[in-house]
Amino acid sequence: MRPETPPQLETRTCQAAIRSPELDESIKLFHQATGIGFYEQLPEEPNWTHYLDLTYAQKMRFSLVFDQQAEPHSRHATYPVHTYGAFPGLLNAGGEAPVATHKISAVTVAPSYRRRGILSRQITADLAYAQQAAFPIAALTASEATIYGRYGFEPATYQSRFTLKCAHGVKLRVQVPGRVVDADPQHFGPGYAALAVRALEQTFGSVDSTEFDNGFALGRWDTWETLEKPKNLRFAAYYDDAGQLGGFATYKFG
């Protein structure tokens, strides 16, 4: 049995700034490889325009690590073995103004390339870049949070899911002032944008919305995995007694 050939790794880092056909192809490859790394369904071809637009809107800086010694018949002869993305954002850290934040996303390592220090080298280099770019803090969303503790991260918040049973209506303990209206998302964009800014300013620990978040809230697409348009989505907006928008929700009937 012959020994395994160690990988000869090459890192390519791109900045989604000025659009070009070459950069478009790199972005597409990056998202394809990320989807494979997360075991997700790959999007249909017409939706790739959305991925390109969103990536440029985020001003994403992303890296692809290739194995130059990969077998010709291997997926990694053309696809990267590691993906890593980051983009600028804002965080409400309790001060007078939001703090500039280095948002990390799309971190994957192919199963056969794990435990070789690929992520360690990449995240160390990226955090050094963030420090040089004067970001005071970095943040990421992780399904396996324990991995990142060694790099200085620790849990800040958790995602929760709940089911509200309202077959017989939702009974409130007190009468809520104001009104709830059935909203039209085509005319609700400016109001939602202002609401998102107020939510960031008033909610400790919150981060700013991306173009994807805005489109998701307004029903332009369902999930990041496919960016398909959701079906039968309803919209509701709450206005207080003064007529100011105070909340917004999307929902479906089951």
Rank of each mutant, 00 (worst) to 15 (best):
K28Q: 03
K28L: 05
F30P: 03
H31M: 07
H31R: 06
H31Y: 01
H31D: 02
Q32R: 05
Q32A: 01
Q32N: 03
A33E: 02
A33M: 02
A33Q: 00
T34V: 04
T34N: 08
T34F: 05
G35K: 02
G35T: 04
G35Q: 06
I36T: 05
G37V: 11
F38M: 10
F38D: 04
Y39S: 11
E40R: 06
E40Q: 14
Q41C: 05
L42P: 00
L42N: 07
L42K: 05
L42Y: 08
L42G: 04
E44G: 04
E45Q: 15
E45D: 14
P46N: 09
P46Q: 13
P46T: 08
N47V: 01
N47W: 00
W48P: 00
W48Y: 05
T49S: 14
T49D: 13
H50Q: 15
L52C: 09
D53F: 12
D53V: 03
D53Y: 10
D53W: 09
L54A: 04
T55D: 07
T55N: 14
Y56M: 14
A57T: 01
A57D: 06
A57R: 10
Q58H: 09
Q58L: 15
M60N: 11
M60R: 15
R61T: 14
R61N: 13
F62M: 09
F62Y: 09
S63Y: 04
S63N: 13
L64Y: 12
L64E: 04
L64G: 06
V65S: 07
V65E: 01
F66A: 06
F66M: 03
D67P: 01
Q68M: 10
Q68I: 01
Q68D: 08
Q69A: 15
Q69W: 10
A70D: 10
A70T: 11
E71L: 00
E71K: 11
P72G: 11
H73W: 06
H73S: 09
H73I: 05
S74D: 13
S74P: 07
